[in-house]
Simulated scan of single mutants.
Amino acid sequence: MSELRFSLADVAGVRLAVSPVNETVMSMWALASPIHYAVHLPWIDRARATLRRPEVADRVRPLVELARPRCWLPDFLTPAARPNVEIAEQLDQIAATPPDVVVQDLLATTPRRPLSAYGRALLAEPRELLPQLVDAVRVWYDEAIAPDWPRMRALLDADVAYRAAQLAEGGAGQFFEQLHPSLRWHGDRVVSDDPFERDFDLRGRGLALNPTVFTERRVLWNLLEDSMPAGAYPVRGVGTLWEATGTPPGDPLARVIGPGRAALLHLLDAAATTTGLARLTGMSAGNVSQHLAALHAAGLVHRSRQGRHVLYRNSDAARVLLRASRGG
């Protein structure tokens, strides 16, 4: 069980963001243990083929050795994200990690399992070997994450919008109680039902939270109290991530309402924003807005405002049409 203790400043400092580097690093867990990440099998098949290429395998090896399944990650490798951060900025942040922090963070990961060969080498020569690790993360992002990043980002952005509205409307207690079944709010602290036994006093630094598609079952926290407080939690709707972005071949619904509107309905089992849908479908935001307006007027989608974002989701009538078109 872990506990995070909040002051009033920490409650006000809870922030949500998408972290490209976290997705890149944590994706290694899915690659190594596909049976535990079956929802990602379409991506895993492609990523494994990518990793078999010798020129990729050699450069990514430091990340493969450091991001092993059922092993803790050093905090410097999963830095607290801020809104709209890009992968290049996060890589620069990792590259600038002082050698003593690299050593401290690596040692914090060893109680459960010893370091890999690369981990031991990095521990001995952090200044010399850290650039190899940064290069490994960059290469893996470019080769395996970037091609699918628009659809990942759309799902993650929709979750951030949804959670931000929960926090604004319901306060910290309701927010954390609904963030994940393992979390409970007890007045001035979050109690996390997990095996990590971490104990944090946030000390006015706030808490950075990011949804991730590659977290299995739990909220994952930074290991060390001296690190910037951060946590990664499972994103909502991950089961829709690898669904086809267009309409199925021969989709009868597309013949009735048009392929663009049918494509949106196939994606709106989970709530999404106009921007997110544009990323997923490849349509312009203007076209998506026009289709959504028509679908809303026909009673096929509901819309709700969550903070600064408008989320769309299928209505019951749309779900009936989808079941009929899918032969269900």
Score class of each variant (00 low, 15 high):
Ala244Asp: 08
Phe76Asp: 00
Val56Leu: 09
Leu202Val: 12
Ser227Thr: 15
Pro99Cys: 10
Tyr233Lys: 02
Gly276Met: 05
Leu311Tyr: 10
Gly239Trp: 08
Gln290Asn: 14
Val85Ser: 14
His302Arg: 06
Pro229Phe: 05
Arg236Trp: 14
Thr273Ile: 05
Pro249Gly: 07
Phe175Cys: 06
Gly327Trp: 07
Gly204Cys: 11
Leu4Phe: 09
Gly187Met: 02
Val39Cys: 04
Ser325Trp: 02
Ala230Cys: 13
Leu167Val: 04
Leu115Met: 14
Val139Cys: 04
Leu207Asn: 02
Gln290Arg: 15
Ala262Glu: 08
Asp316Glu: 14
Thr273Leu: 09
Glu125Ser: 14
Leu311Thr: 13
Ala96Val: 07
Ser227Arg: 06
Leu207His: 00
Ala81Gly: 09
Thr50Leu: 06
Leu321Tyr: 08
Met1Phe: 15
Glu23Val: 07
Ala285Thr: 04
Ala67Asn: 08
Leu167Arg: 00
Arg127Ala: 12
Ala271Trp: 13
Ala262Asn: 07
Leu220Thr: 05
Arg120Ser: 11
Leu122His: 13
Trp149His: 11
Ala278Arg: 04
Thr273Ser: 15
Met26His: 09
Arg184Asn: 04
Arg59Ile: 14
Val191Gln: 01
Arg255Glu: 08
Gly307Thr: 02
Ser227Asp: 06
Leu207Cys: 05
Glu169Leu: 12
Val60Met: 08
Ala96Ile: 03
Phe76Gln: 01
Ala164His: 14
Val102Gly: 11
Arg323Gln: 13
Arg163Pro: 00
Asp193Val: 10
Val85Phe: 03
Arg59Val: 15
Leu73Gly: 05
Val235Gly: 02
Glu89Val: 15
Glu225Cys: 10
Pro34Gly: 06
Leu130Met: 03
Gly299Leu: 06
Thr245Arg: 01
Arg255Ala: 13
Gly119His: 07
